[in-house]
């Protein structure tokens, strides 16, 4: 290409921007790895934290994290699925209610996580009397991931071949039978992707958890115990514990790996949905 000098400069600027952004991110990862990789081992994952997290591992914290995620997904998945089915099945003609609900969901999706934290503290911890517990934290996160999950599943249901819907109706199948045997299985990749996105977002969350599920780093014995999530652990180690940086970095590596896995799975699942549609 014989390009004019201004054009050449513009291209260089784009390259420069992309390279510098990539370099900063590489810098971040290298720092994390340099600081945390030494502490990362199988023992780190399987032993309990000691000395406020400076020593030992993150076993109880991983368990708390998984329990909180379990509660969040266990509540958000069925409610979200139902809501998505309703939006997809009963609001096809348009109509005000569906539009208003979607608007409310979009508003909810953009809400800062700290606001979810405040709500969770006021509603679950205080009003419902659940206190600082894994249950409070999980329910707060369920509220937080619900809107994104609903919209992802709704989009997936909308992408399901209409021929199947009409075919099921023409065979005299009930709506619930068509959903259970044809529509939901066909939308399974979207449902999986929505779940993974939600899990990724929930696992990364800190602000919504510090005053709902709390700080306690002991191994939780029940859902009504307080439990410290991995993200909260990183926050606490780096802000409140002198000499906690190494373990904070190691925990951050574990958390990034967890979230990256969830996101990759989400991408793979939605891609499967796409190819399946193209195969028809």
């Amino acid at each position: 290409m014989h390009s004019v000098p201004g054009d050449r400069l513009f291209g260089l600027a784009l390259w420069g921007a992309a390279l510098s952004v990539a370099a900063v991110f590489a810098w971040l990862f290298v720092d994390l790895a340099r600081l945390g990789l030494g502490a990362l081992s199988w023992d780190f994952i399987t032993t309990a934290p000691e000395n406020a997290g400076r020593d030992g591992g993150i076993a109880s914290i991983l368990v708390s994290t998984l329990l909180i995620l379990g509660v969040a997904v266990g509540v958000a998945a069925p409610v979200g699925l139902g809501a998505a089915v309703w939006l997809n099945t009963y609001t096809r003609a348009g109509g005000g209610t569906g539009r208003r609900i979607r608007l409310a969901l979009d508003g909810l999706a953009g809400m800062p996580s700290i606001v979810f934290g405040l709500f969770g503290n006021a509603f679950f911890s205080v009003y419902l009397g659940l206190g600082f517990s894994i249950l409070s934290g999980g329910l707060t996160l369920a509220a937080m991931i619900l809107p994104v999950f609903i919209r992802t599943v709704e989009a997936g249901l909308g992408a399901v071949d209409d021929g199947w819907r009409r075919g099921a109706a023409a065979l005299g199948l009930t709506q619930s039978a068509a959903l259970a045997h044809v529509i939901l299985p066909a939308a399974a990749p979207a449902i999986g992707a929505g779940l993974m996105l939600g899990i990724g977002r929930a696992a990364a969350e800190t602000a919504a958890l510090i005053f709902t599920s709390g700080y306690v780093d002991r191994m939780p014995e029940s859902l009504s115990d307080s439990g410290r999530a991995l993200a909260v652990h990183i926050y606490d180690l780096s802000m409140n514990v002198a000499g906690g940086d190494t373990h904070a970095a190691a925990s951050a590596l574990v958390l990034v790996a967890l979230v990256a896995c969830a996101n990759l799975l989400a991408v793979a699942l939605s891609r499967r949905l796409l190819t399946r549609r193209l195969a028809l």
Partner: peptide, 21 residues
Amino acid sequence: DVRALRRRVGMIFQRPNPFPL
């Protein structure tokens, strides 16, 4: 009873639509 009707009146569509089963 639309289900009973559709049992008596079957339908075939332009694009084959076997379920993904």
